[in-house]
Each structure stands twice: as structure tokens, then as C-alpha cells.
Design a protein around this nucleic acid. Structure first.
Lengths: 197, 197
DNA sequence: AATATTTGCTAACATCCGTTAGTATATTAT
DNA sequence: ATAATATACTAACGGATGTTAGCAAATATT
């Protein structure tokens, strides 16, 4: 009877959520079974239910964990007294950082949130919409201040967010440039594309 | 006994594939059941198998249909005698066009190809890798010609492709700007970000 | 009109899924 | 050491899934 191994300051539930993120990323939420997850945790499927309520709860944990971190960062950036273009750059850097350091969770939150069940689903969608609105508002501020090209701000946000999501492919690519070079390249292209020179 | 309605010059199989694309886009490949598909086609699940071999075949059809169109366009663009930055713009415009006009198929091909079975899976991955290599080569050509900023070309390709994938969100958004405005905005940001001025 | 082919239907299959019940064992608290 | 709690196990459930077999009806061909 091998117990789930835990690090200091972490619960068994957290271990399960973390393994679930890796599995959901690899196979997709629907295609990943609780038996798969159990195997990756090193335990029988039924045993998981001593720690979690349901498969969907795992998805909640992952998605809202990520969403909360982004919302918190948005609060921080918004309240800073820096230029709009610097705010944009700061947000982009945070996104890339999150993608690099919490790859599995961010990826799953991005691609698998559809499988959340109400009321979590609506909740998540609302948060996501709010985040984009706030991001777009920063860009519009930049346009008013003549820091940023006259473009459609919501479109710019879509482009930025999805471009960053592309790190997914980079993450598993063999010929990796390092993370800081990657970030600089992205900033060059994305911020360079926005900036009014 | 209601037959599957077909337009002129289209087979029943094509109708099924098209409905499948819409369903796979909405629910994801794994979550969409053959019974769901049958209902959307207006027929019983078993009847589908008079026209197709398997659920996976539907995914093949969708993914390779899209991949072939992109490969064909790449051939055409590569052989044109225009500047590298114009080639990039032409490819981006094609991507956006495809995303707008064949939304469901392109989306599914982008997000659900993981569920292809070998040998189709490896085949698809290879094609995808080749496409990106050829795209990157164009960007590198542009860098050598001093049309494009000195950036990591594969990274630029990732950014471009994923940014365009973001039209997905635009497609279902209520407050749409029209397709041609959208395209212009994307070109401004993306090509503007690449261009060496 | 008769025949052959295509396309649909119902019924059922084997398998996999998430989850629960009941029980045994390991850890923690007394 | 004993009791209480946390965690694991085996077994099984009800339901969904992709698919097949066998048959009936619609259409196409002769």
C-alpha cells in the first residue's frame, strides 16, 4: 500500500492536481481518464476520491488557480504609475513567465476550460472577458497618449494573448532558444508591432 | 426514413464531415459522440457507417483537407517573385481568410489533431513541421535582405500562426469588426512588428 | 416492372468511463 | 498501547461510447 508521496508544504490533493494538469495537457481533459491519472500518481483510481470530489473539480482547481494569478497581476499592473506601453510589456512578460514556469496549468486553463461545468463555466468566462477588457483599456489608453498605433484594441489583445499561447509549441521543441531570448524576441515583435514610432 | 440532404456536387460523406467539423469544434473531438453527430445530421448513429469507416476517419478528412490547402498556398507563395515581407503578408492574409471562411475545419485541425491515430498522426505532424520550416525560411530570407528585423525566425512563425489562431475568439464575439478591418489590423500589428524601418 | 444498389433502421455487443460501497491498513493523537 | 483518523484497496454499479449485424425501405439501373 504505497501512499502518495508529498513534498513539504504540499497536500496530497495538490500532487493530484499537478499530475492531472500534466495529463490533461497531454491528452486533453476528456481523453484523460481517472485510471490514467491514478497510474501517474501511483495509486488505484478509487483512491483518488479520498482527496478530491470529482474529475471536474480537478479542472476547476487548475483553471481558477491560473485565472487568479493573472487577475492579481492585472490589479498590480493597473495600479502602477508607468506608461501604457510599459504596462503592456509588463503583462506580456508575466504571461510568458507563467507559460514557461507553470506550463501545464496555463495550457490546460487555456484550452480545456470549455469542459468546466456551470456555474464554474460562466464564472470563468466572465473572468476571462473582464481580463481582456482591462487589457484592451490599457491599449486604448496608449492610443490616446499616442504611444500606440491606432488599431482596434480588442483585436490587439486577441493577437497578443494567442501569440503568447504559442509558446506551447516552443516548450516541447528540441531546438529551444532559452527563455529569456524567447521573451525578448516576442517583445520585439509584439510591442514593436504596437508601438507608434 | 429521411435521407441525408445533399447539395449539388457534394456527397453525403461530405455533409457528414462538415457537420462533424462543427461538432468537433464545439465540443472537442473526444467529447463529441457519434450519436451527437447523427442527431445533427438527422439520422441514426449506425447509419453514418454506410458513408464513413470510423470516427477517426472524420478527423483525418478534416485535418488533411486543411493541411493540403495550406501546403498548396505555400507552394504558390514560395514560387512568386515578390519580396519576403510581401510573401509573409500574403501568407498571413491567406491564414486569416481560411480562418474566416473555413472556420470550423481550420479550428479543429489546429486544436484536435492530437487525436489522430498513427500513421496519420506522424504524417500530420511532419507536414506541420515542414510548413513552419518553409515559413521560417521566408522570414530568414527577409532578414538577410534587411527587410525584416533580426529576430529568431522560428519564434516569429510561432507568434504569427498562433496570433492568427486567435480569430477563433473574434469569430464568435458579438461586437465584431468586419473581416477586412480585422485583417488590416492584424497585418498592421504583425507585419509592423517584423518590418525593419 | 423487375432487379440491384444504396441508404436507413433497430438491436445489441464489448469496452471504457466516473464514481461509490465496503473493507483493510497505515499513520496520528491520546 | 489504544483509539481515532486518514488513506489505500478490491469489487462493482450504471451509463455512455464506437461499432457491427441483420433487416427494411428508398432509389437507381436495366
Amino acid at each position: 500500500m504505497a501512499r502518495i508521496k508529498i513534498e513539504k508544504n504540499s497536500s496530497r490533493k495538490e500532487v493530484i492536481v499537478s499530475k492531472a494538469a500534466a495529463l490533461f495537457r497531454e491528452k486533453g481533459f476528456k481523453a484523460a481518464s481517472m485510471r490514467d491519472l491514478a497510474e501517474s500518481v501511483g495509486v488505484e483510481a478509487a483512491s483518488l476520491y479520498n482527496h478530491i470530489k470529482s474529475k471536474t473539480e480537478l479542472l476547476h482547481e487548475i483553471c481558477f488557480g491560473v485565472a487568479n494569478r493573472f487577475m492579481h497581476k492585472m490589479d498590480e499592473v493597473e495600479s502602477g504609475s508607468i506608461s501604457a506601453i510599459e504596462k503592456v510589456e509588463q503583462l506580456i512578460r508575466f504571461h510568458i513567465d507563467e507559460m514557461v514556469n507553470h506550463y501545464e496549468e496555463v495550457y490546460v486553463s487555456d484550452r480545456e476550460w470549455k469542459h468546466l461545468a456551470d456555474p464554474y463555466l460562466s464564472n470563468f468566462q466572465t473572468q476571462r472577458r473582464m481580463y481582456r477588457k482591462r487589457f484592451a483599456a490599457i491599449i486604448e489608453e496608449g492610443i490616446r497618449n499616442k504611444e500606440i498605433k491606432k488599431i482596434d484594441a480588442p483585436t490587439a489583445v486577441l493577437i497578443l494573448l494567442h501569440a503568447i499561447g504559442g509558446i506551447e509549441s516552443w516548450h516541447r521543441s528540441t531546438q529551444k532558444i532559452n527563455a529569456s531570448n524567447l521573451t525578448d524576441n516576442m517583445i520585439t515583435i509584439l510591442v514593436g508591432g504596437l508601438e507608434l514610432k
